Amino acid sequence: MIYTIKDSGPLVSIITPSYNSSAFIKETIESVQAQSYPHWEMIIVDDKSKDDSVHIIHEYIKTEPRIKLIPLTQNGGAARARNVAINEAKGEYIAFLDSDDLWFPTKLEDQVTFMQKGNLAFSFTSYSLMDEKGNPMDIEVTAPETVDYQYLIGNTTIGCLTVMLDRRQIKQIEMPVIQPEDTALWLLLLRQGYQAYGLQKVLSKYRIVRNSTSRNKLKAAYRYWKLLRSQEKLNLIKTNFYFSKYAYHAYNKNRGKRPTSIPSEGKQGK
């Protein structure tokens, strides 16, 4: 059931998959608690962590009724964890935040206002990069004003931690079980005729974690190639064309240029 808190703004359901996130989950939760927009619920799905993530999350739940924890009995990856959370969500809006990333305090307020003013179904924002310790890397990923299917397929510019979706307009929200699952969903929605609108304000911080599977560039490239071939069902010529565009933007990012995209990297699934 979708509902709105009476005499207040619409409820935002925050979707957070967590796997062995004990080093970062405190900061992530506290960045949500610090939001200037109070009408949210945070649904954390723990993907069978082996560390003390669950204990840490329970400590916050004791004093924060807006946080809900769903522990999974088997590890199933980020797509499954996010879909479990989406199915439990009660909000009119869905927002995504991985368990090692951070939001600036006005993220929800600014984006809800942006969505409402334009009656938007799909929005995203600019964001910045930080290293594993949370230090800024002086790199910002700038959101284009609009993104359609043809744009996104060659430039994975939409950061998962910045996306907000309106469930009243998008009736079916489910991440495909294929990596990168976030980009797979954005492509699916854009192929259905939706358009993504960019709020050109840095409202989130994406953490670059050393030695994570998502940082393996060859694996990330292979996953994107596979997505183009299997989900998008492109022929070899079109796959080569769009993959080369993807690689070009990723290369510029890794050279330290101020990018308009970074490779799509789901960090939670194992």
Rank of each mutant, 00 (worst) to 15 (best):
Y60N: 01
N252Y: 09
V32N: 00
A23P: 02
Y246K: 00
A196H: 05
A143F: 09
A79E: 03
N254L: 11
I86P: 06
Q35P: 09
I14E: 01
S128L: 07
I43T: 06
V54M: 09
I178W: 03
D138E: 13
M137N: 01
Q33Y: 04
Y93L: 12
K253I: 05
Y194G: 10
L199A: 08
S230C: 02
G154M: 12
K253Q: 14
F114C: 13
G134D: 11
S123D: 08
Q74P: 02
A78H: 07
M175G: 06
L190I: 00
S126I: 02
I94N: 01
I29E: 07
N83K: 02
K133Q: 15
E181T: 10
Q231R: 13
Q150M: 13
I94S: 06
A85V: 09
Y224C: 04
E265F: 03
S99V: 12
F96I: 09
M42L: 15
A89Q: 07
L199D: 03
K133I: 00
G134P: 08
C160W: 06
H55F: 14
I43F: 03
I86K: 00
W225C: 12
W40T: 06
S212F: 00
D131Y: 07
L69A: 03
T28G: 04
I14Y: 04
I61E: 13
L72N: 05
Y248D: 13
D166C: 04
L108A: 07
L108N: 08
N83F: 07
E30C: 13
Y242P: 05
A23V: 11
K267T: 07
P180K: 08
I2F: 04
K253D: 14
I86C: 06
Q179R: 12
Q200I: 11
P136V: 04
L97V: 09
Q192I: 08
R80I: 15
F241G: 03
Y93A: 01
R80G: 05
D100M: 07
Q179F: 10
M175L: 15
M137K: 12
D148F: 00
Y246M: 04
S8C: 12
G91E: 05
N87T: 13
K217P: 02
I173R: 05
F104K: 14
E232D: 05
N83V: 01
N240Q: 15
A250G: 10
I43P: 01
I29M: 00
V112L: 07
R168S: 13
V84F: 04
S8W: 04
G159A: 08
N119H: 14
G118N: 08
A78C: 15
I178R: 13
